[in-house]
């Protein structure tokens, strides 16, 4: 008898509290985003697609030292060196296999030249497997750059990491 009474109290007095919760949120603003049309801003440290940075005069920062390939836990990076016209070392081939990449950001941390950076783009879907083998040309930032969106990210990342805001 006591059990039945308890159940009756639950159904008629307590369960409407639950319905009130759903009704309350019915009149609230939705928390979701209209995704493909609206996108949420990513955090400064977000690890998305890779970029290869240049110096201000347009030469590549990457000297093909191989530290990023050594640090990569997924063995996704392949590179071969060459010398440019001034006799400086640079990468002839620099490939990242995005199918293997786990976006851990170790390459970014390993790079002593601050050449490779993980940007904020995250939409990679494609139809061909071959399109996920990214070459140096695809990852190098444009030169010359007018509005230079990358530099903004770069500054923000350095600020987020607490490093002095100096770009040579």
């Amino acid at each position: 008898m006591k059990e039945v009474l308890k159940a009756v109290v639950n159904v008629f007095l307590k369960m409407p509290l639950g319905f009130m919760v759903t009704i309350k949120y019915f009149f609230r603003k939705p928390v979701t985003l209209d995704y493909p049309h609206k996108k949420r801003p990513m955090a400064p440290r977000y690890r998305g697609r890779h970029y290869l940075e240049r110096y201000d005069d347009g030469t590549e920062r990457c000297v093909c030292c191989g530290l990023c390939a050594a640090a990569c836990p997924a063995d996704a990076i392949y590179m071969e060196p060459e010398e440019n016209e001034k006799g400086e070392r640079r990468a002839r081939i620099y490939e990242i296999n995005l199918l293997r990449c786990i976006f851990c950001g170790f390459c970014e941390e390993a790079c002593p030249e601050e050449a490779i950076f993980l940007g904020h783009e995250y939409e990679f879907s494609d139809y061909e497997r071959s399109s996920f083998l990214w070459t140096k040309e695809q990852m190098l930032v444009q030169h010359p750059r007018k509005d230079n969106p990358f530099k903004r990210i770069y500054r923000r990342v350095r600020k987020a990491y607490g490093a002095p805001d100096k770009i040579s």
Binding site: I102, F103, C104, G105
Partner: peptide
């Protein structure tokens, strides 16, 4: 920098300072 695969806690400390 990542929502699920964070790798934030590292051997000897954290990957970066707290934001």
């Amino acid at each position: 920098g990542q929502r699920m695969m964070t790798t934030y806690i590292r051997i000897g400390g954290l990957a970066h300072d707290l934001p």
